[in-house]
Amino acid sequence: MSQQIPPAAVLAEGMIAGDHWIQVQPEQIRATLSRLQAEGFTYFLFLTCVDHLATPLLQQPPQRFELVYQLRDLKQRREIRVRVFLPEERPEIASVQDIFAAANWDERETWDMFGIEFEGHPNLERILMPEDWIGHPLRRDFPVGGEPVDFSEDHETWQTAPPQA
């Protein structure tokens, strides 16, 4: 597989539970995705973000935010996952909605939920939350919210992220 992807851009590559993935530099995301599209990965499945704040993993992820792009080749029936790591301060990346039109709403959702900025997105505004909402709910330091429940394991059930030191 690796010869099909621009070799300079790929930082790491692997398989996990049968899923093929590559990791690229954030600056290379547009080049990588257009190259993959030309190679037959024409179907954009989803784009999302993973917040690695205070991860218990032994092998620490390089940055706090991990963007995941999942693409599919309908003809050869294969999939690929492209990973990009973004820093905690001002996470931003180039928009790919002109390469994959289906990424438009996914980018808006990722902005809404994680506060990742997509440069060059024509309409980067909140999609799920009300427009006057403050904060990005799916970040791990955003509380789950709701109301306290008596006699429940509050400390375990409602605390997503450990308290900030």
Partner: peptide, 12 residues
């Protein structure tokens, strides 16, 4: 009551 969704998005 908000049901199973005791979170930021749902009116309790």
């Amino acid at each position: 009551t908000g049901g199973v969704f005791n979170n930021y998005a749902i009116l309790q």
